[in-house]
Design a binder for these strands. Structure first.
Length: 248
DNA sequence: ATCGGAATAA
DNA sequence: TTATTCCGAT
C-alpha cells in the first residue's frame, strides 16, 4: 500500500534517540504525542501544523490530516482529530499544554514543564547548573541514572533534558533581555554561563555549526554520534499516496 | 469546537 | 501511565 510510516525508520529527525522510548522497554511506549507535534513543528512545513503568535503557541491547520499522520505513526488507522484532541486535553492537567481560548485549533506548549515532567529521572538542570556554573554538560556524560538505549551500539548515551533548538519556535532572541528566561529553567540557570544562543550552542555536547544568524529551521543532518539523531530522509513527501492534496 | 468522564488498551 | 475509543454536555 502507500507509504506507511514505520516508527523506527521514520523520516523524523528532530529528537535524539533517548527521546524515543522503545515500545519493548518496560513501561514505556514509543513516541509521545508532544514529541510528534514538536517534530512536525520543527520541520516547518506548515501545511498541517505551524507555530503562531506567542512563544510556544501553535495552530493546527489541518486537524484531520494531523490525526491521520499521528495515526500512521502509532499504527492507529482510525485516528481522528476528535480522539487526538482528547489526548491533547490530557496534557492540560500535566501543564504540558494549554488551550489558547478563542483561537480555533490553537494550543500552546509550556516548555518549562515539558522536560521535567516527562524525564523525571534525568538530573535537574537547575541543580546541575547551580552546583557549578562551569561546564554544566560534563555532568551529563554517560554514567548516572540516565536512560540507556536498548541498542548496544557503541553509544556514549549522552542525555540531558534539553530539547534541541529546532524544537522551539523560531530563534531565541537572547541578544536582548530575554523575556523567555522564566519559562526555561535550564536557560535561566544557564544565564550566567551562556548569555546568548551561540554560547548555548557552544556548550552543547557536540560540535555543531549552526548558522546563528538564521532562524533555526535547519539542523545539520550529520549530527554528532553522541546524540545519535534519528536519521532524516529528505523533507520530501513521506505522506500518503492517497492522493489527497487539498481538502476543503 | 471544546471539554472531560468513563472504560479500556498496552 | 499515555493514550485510544466513545460520548454527552456546553
Amino acid at each position: 500500500m502507500g507509504p506507511l510510516i514505520s516508527p523506527y525508520w521514520s523520516q523524523t529527525v528532530l529528537f535524539p534517540d533517548w527521546a524515543y522510548k522503545p515500545a519493548w522497554s518496560p513501561g514505556s511506549r514509543q513516541v509521545q504525542l508532544w514529541h510528534f507535534l514538536l517534530e512536525l513543528l520543527g520541520r516547518g512545513e506548515g501545511g498541517v501544523i505551524t507555530w503562531s503568535g506567542e512563544w510556544g503557541e501553535f495552530v493546527i491547520q489541518d486537524p484531520e490530516r494531523l490525526a491521520k499522520l499521528w495515526g500512521e505513526r502509532k499504527g492507529k488507522p482510525h485516528m481522528n482529530y476528535d480522539k487526538l484532541s482528547r489526548a491533547l486535553r490530557y496534557y492540560y492537567n500535566k501543564r504540558i499544554l494549554h488551550k489558547t481560548k478563542g483561537k480555533r485549533f490553537t494550543y500552546k506548549f509550556n516548555f518549562s514543564k515539558l522536560i521535567l515532567v516527562n524525564y523525571p529521572n534525568l538530573p535537574s538542570c537547575q541543580q546541575v547548573f547551580q552546583s557549578g556554573n562551569s561546564l554544566p554538560f560534563s555532568h551529563f556524560s554517560s554514567e548516572g541514572s540516565l536512560y540507556s538505549p536498548p541498542v548496544d551500539r557503541a553509544q556514549p548515551s549522552v542525555s540531558h533534558p534539553l530539547l534541541l533548538p529546532y524544537c522551539f519556535p523560531k530563534s531565541l532572541p537572547f541578544s536582548q533581555a530575554s523575556p523567555y528566561q522564566g519559562q526555561f529553567p535550564f536557560l535561566s540557570a544557564l544565564h550566567s554561563s551562556a548569555t546568548n544562543l551561540s554560547e548555548l550552542i557552544r556548550l552543547l555536547p557536540f560540535n555543531s555549526s549552526l548558522h546563528l544568524g538564521q532562524t533555526l529551521t535547519s539542523w545539520p543532518t550529520k549530527g554528532s554520534a553522541e546524540w545519535c539523531l534519528n536519521r532524516a530522509t529528505a523533507p520530501s513527501q513521506v505522506d500518503e499516496g492517497e492522493g489527497q492534496e487539498k481538502k476543503m
